[in-house]
Write a protein that binds this DNA or RNA. Structure first.
Lengths: 219, 219
DNA sequence: CGTGGAATCCGTGGCAGCACCCATCTCGGC
DNA sequence: GCCGAGATGGGTGCTGCCACGGATTCCACG
């Protein structure tokens, strides 16, 4: 194949300590090398423009642009670059969103270092996904839904909706949000209702957890 | 001094990947060596019993027992062991709680690997704290309060209160919680009100973020 | 050009969250 | 043996959350 023997990796995680540790894990492998490090999604996109990158390893929760958002943009701009999403949480919602965002793999931070390396190798071989055991059931479900042509769960929120969710998760009232966005309270409540329905949630506490998982806010 | 040349470290973090990376960072240092790894606070306490540990590096947010809870117990049971808390979040509340829990240091995961190593060394030399610049102001505030004998912010919640917070953060209603704990709705609301007052918060979304920071629930 | 989705706005109504007041009982520490 | 704190229960009242119904404008895409 034309691909070089060593895989050039772009690594993005907002916690320098974690990023450094993961880099050490990857760099120990003979045919994996980290060529760039980013602290958020926007920086990752910028670095992907100036470096030749075979594989992007992106944390899901990052400031500015989340890993999911960066993955969406990256897979659009350079389809040749494989994407592996790193997540703290074993959650259906985000797993599905990762697939929709164009990721070739989804790995939990709770896995062993060997599993991360194996995931990188599998993705570069073109194998669709590598995942911890807990996710095999989700994979089957995903493939079945895809086969039936169902609408996937975890549909993406509109930009306005994300904005409202962020403010709700910060503990602001609907009145607050209406003032901030200079719209009517009813519109805020409409957005909230639409989001709750989309995500199949019931109240603000669940939205708050969603916002944190997605990296829209910090806990 | 009687302390051996190399510092024996107990490392606890619930994400194996992060734990492994941090271990690589620490083990590269000549006089630092990780002698045990734990995936939660309870495991850390158990390992501290069977290993000789000079320094415990604990993640704040962990299942079963949080890093804060483990630190409290550890500093009670073996006061000779120094404790360094690792946190994702630059937050007053948790910084103060870390100090109260008996930690000798508090380090953000956003710092560089060198800073973590320096923090370990500083703590072992008996220097009270090492922290990123953002925390120096907090330190001063803490020392001033301590000098004035003020009650510190970040008072610890009772076990019952933590239980209620956890359920609130999971999105359950007061009625739900009352049924689960077999107490009256009014008691649940009483607990909630007390917690909100203690933490100086206003609603459930902030409690949810608190619960996540403290590792009581996952996002 | 029509269709569909995003974004905006409105009304009605019930129930939960939260603030304020009150009380009792128990248990461990001083 | 008393005192404080935790855990328990209650009442009253307002406001914001959330569910349901409806609507219009605008823009992109086929």
């Amino acid at each position: 194949m034309s691909r070089p023997a060593t895989t050039r990796i772009l690594l993005a995680d907002d916690h320098a300590l974690v990023r450094r540790g993961v880099r050490l894990i990857l760099d120990r492998e003979p045919n994996l090398t980290v060529v760039a490090e980013a602290g958020d999604g926007a920086e990752a996109l910028a670095l992907a423009r100036v470096h030749t990158v075979d594989l992007a390893v992106l944390d899901v929760a990052m400031p500015r642009l989340t890993g999911l958002q960066a993955a969406r943009e990256l897979s659009r701009r350079s389809p040749g670059t494989r994407i592996l999403l790193l997540s703290m949480y074993d959650n259906d919602q985000y797993f599905f969103e990762a697939l929709r965002a164009g990721a070739s793999g989804y790995v939990l931070k709770s896995v062993a270092d060997r599993d991360l390396v194996e995931a990188c190798r599998a993705v570069m071989r073109g194998e669709p996904f590598l995942y911890p055991d807990a996710l095999t059931a989700l994979m089957r479900e995903y493939l079945q839904r895809a086969a039936r042509g169902d609408r996937l769960p975890g549909s993406i929120l509109s930009t306005r909706e994300e904005e409202v969710v962020k403010l709700i998760a910060e503990g602001r009232t609907s009145q607050d949000i209406a003032d901030l966005l200079v719209i009517s309270v009813k519109t805020v409540e409409r957005h909230r209702a639409n989001v709750l329905a989309k995500l199949e949630m019931r109240d603000r506490t669940q939205l708050t957890r969603y916002a944190i998982r997605a990296g829209l806010i910090e806990p």
